[in-house]
């Protein structure tokens, strides 16, 4: 049994396996399937200052080895989270991390301030990369200046671990990662979904109500892995890797490419028990490779 503990700045995780925001609900939905306490942590769904209805149906299209979504950050707002969900999250030892989204800097800051007051939430993930909202979201994450502005503003009000989630829909993701680091981010997570599109040839209509949406699942893995590697080499803060992780081997590839922790997203839909299987798989791999700690393989790609 290898030591699976990793640290993302002040945030101490029992193992590097987290879940991706928007694919794991509020966590407790998985309690019939797995023991939530076996995860390093879990990212709750995108939370905004105010209630959001999200985009109209249809919001999903299956694509080769993946899917497009256009949910558009549907959620009941941060106050609902604090009153109704936070008490449930507090019952688990596994760490809940809130994914904070917004459409203007003031909203990001106001939402973060409310989360900062919650004792048991030790970190937030700032989502500056959602492709499915008209204003804000990804717009913040596709230009270094605006990324820096929003991260700096949130940093001022958030003393705990601040993770910034990056968009892959840019020419050079390392540029945005460095901007986030310069503005005080403790970690970057990547990737959010890739902008894509699906068409129904028979009806000649787009499948998604929003025409375009975010691609996730196995199909995006090579791109995500490449971006994690590039980012790992260009920033000093820990990188959290995600995008298309479907099994333990995929997760290990991200760790080797430089991720200190990984997130599992779309794979939860196909196998709701995949997260604990990945924890076990990483452990078996480390034993097989004769490693005492998972930290020995992080960034351990042999060139």
């Amino acid at each position: 049994m290898a030591d699976l503990r990793v640290e993302i700045n002040k945030l101490k995780l029992d193992n590097p396996v987290l879940t991706a925001s928007g694919t794991f609900g509020y966590g407790h939905e998985f309690s019939d399937y797995i023991d939530l306490n076996r995860l390093g942590g879990y990212l709750v769904k995108g939370t905004t200052l105010h209630h959001r209805e999200g985009n109209p149906y249809p919001r999903m299209a299956e694509t080769p080895s993946g899917m497009l979504n256009a949910v558009g950050l549907q959620n009941k707002g941060v106050d609902y989270f604090i009153e109704n969900i936070y008490p449930i999250c507090s019952q688990y030892s596994s760490k809940a991390i809130v994914n904070v989204s917004g459409s203007c800097i003031d909203d990001y800051v106001a939402c973060t301030e409310k989360i900062a007051a919650l004792d048991k939430i030790e970190a937030i993930e700032l989502n500056i990369s959602c492709p499915n909202v008209k204003q804000g979201g990804m717009a913040f994450g596709t230009c270094p200046k605006s990324a820096e502005d929003v991260v700096a503003a949130v940093r001022k009000v958030y003393p705990k671990t601040l993770i910034v989630k990056l968009s892959p829909n840019v020419t050079d993701i390392t540029e945005i990662a460095r901007a986030a680091e310069a503005a005080g981010a403790d970690s970057v997570s990547l990737i959010n979904t890739l902008l894509g599109m699906a068409v129904n040839a028979e009806t000649r209509k787009p499948i998604l109500s929003t025409v375009t949406g975010g691609l996730s699942g196995a199909a995006v893995k090579p791109i995500a892995l490449r971006m994690v590697w590039q980012t790992y080499k260009s920033v000093k803060i820990p990188v959290i890797g995600l995008g298309g992780i479907m099994n333990a081997t995929d997760a290990i590839e991200f760790l080797l490419a430089g991720a200190t922790a990984i997130q599992i997203g779309t794979a939860n839909f196909i196998d709701p028990q995949i997260t604990v299987k990945v924890v076990d798989g990483i452990n078996e791999y480390l034993d097989r490779q004769g490693c005492k700690s998972v930290n020995e393989i992080i960034g351990g790609l042999i060139l």
Binding site: Y57, Q74, N268, F269
Partner: peptide, 22 residues
């Protein structure tokens, strides 16, 4: 029978507009 991704309430892909919202 709205199209679904997860089937158990975590992805919010299958929504129907109702009197109580999505």
């Amino acid at each position: 029978e709205n199209t679904m991704a997860c089937g158990f309430g975590v992805c919010l892909c299958c929504v129907e507009k109702t009197t109580e919202g999505h």
